[in-house]
């Protein structure tokens, strides 16, 4: 049996230099990706010591995307592309894309401001544009909030910068102002003593800073009182509900009247009853 060896000529375009270049490109991509992953992980670890979780996330993404861009340009250059022409084209394309994606860019920049300014962090309870909930993530384009009735709300970062944001859990303790009304016949000093006693008996109410009693005004139907108590922020609902219940119970025991809005008709004389005439048809 006779063996025949075919001599296959490589195409002209696949010369040794090009093959070598292709190998280099593959090596750049492979090594570049591995190095980039390690670099991003190290950066995130180092940033974790000083930055908040969302700061770490943004830093890691900046390193990753910057690295990808660098690898891409290195590969293109290795393949013999003229980078200046590409950069020029990218510039023109960038302007066009920029016009088309103004909102996204605005959100992106707002996201960077949010990360640097840190008006809130993941886990904080915030109120923004009528939405109240716990921040579940702060991303580059939007902030995700989980409301207390378990809805998922995505709020564009631009709105977080423009709107007033109330961070309800920024500080460890907070105050709640109970707006109360008692009848005109009541002794406000006695009411104050009772309210302070109610607050003192509730273990969740802080005795320091001490509760505040303010006699605010002579209202239409009641003496208007503000009674403010301090508590640990996480006890908000318990304190609000319990103290209101305890005030009502204690007022009932002490015979202190909580009036409802009412209207007195004046007959024109202090001693005369209001004239009522029965008319038979």
């Amino acid at each position: 049996m006779e063996f025949q060896f075919a001599v296959i000529d490589l195409p002209e375009w696949l010369d040794r230099d090009l093959a070598f270049n292709l190998l280099k490109v593959l090596a750049i991509i492979a090594i570049g990706f591995v190095v980039l992953r390690i670099l991003a992980a190290l950066t995130a670890k180092m940033a974790g010591k000083k930055l908040s979780p969302q700061g770490v996330m943004v830093t890691r993404k900046v390193v990753l995307y910057g690295g990808y861009t660098l690898i891409l340009f290195t590969v293109l250059r290795q393949m013999g592309f003229d980078l200046s022409a590409i950069m020029g084209a990218a510039g023109i394309a960038g302007v066009a894309i920029g016009f088309a994606s103004q909102t996204s860019v605005s959100n992106l920049i707002s996201g960077l401001f949010l990360v640097s300014e840190k008006p809130f962090e993941v886990g904080n309870v915030i109120e923004v544009a009528g939405t109240l909930g716990e921040v579940s993530s702060v991303d580059l384009l939007s902030t995700k909030v989980r409301t207390f009735d378990n809805r998922y709300v995505r709020i564009p970062n631009e709105m977080m910068i423009k709107e007033q944001v109330v961070n309800l859990t920024r500080f460890p303790i907070r105050r709640y102002d109970f707006q109360l009304g008692v009848a005109y016949k009541e002794d406000t000093r006695r009411v104050e003593a009772i309210l302070r006693e109610v607050a003192g008996q509730n273990p969740l109410v802080l005795d320091d800073p001490e509760p505040i009693f303010v006699f605010k005004n002579f209202g239409d139907s009641a003496l208007e009182i503000q009674f403010s108590v301090w508590f640990v922020t996480t006890d908000y609902l318990k304190v609000k509900s319990n103290v209101l219940t305890e005030i009502k119970e204690r007022f009932d025991v002490e015979g202190i009247e909580i009036p409802f809005p009412h209207l007195s008709l004046y007959a024109g004389s202090v001693t005369q009853p209001f004239p009522v005439k029965s008319v038979e048809k």
Partner: peptide
């Protein structure tokens, strides 16, 4: 015994204690 909460320090950076 039932113990009440109190705060030691300023309202931004203090510490939760029992009174």
């Amino acid at each position: 015994k039932v113990v009440s909460n109190t705060w030691f320090g300023d309202t931004a950076t203090g510490e939760l204690c029992y009174s």
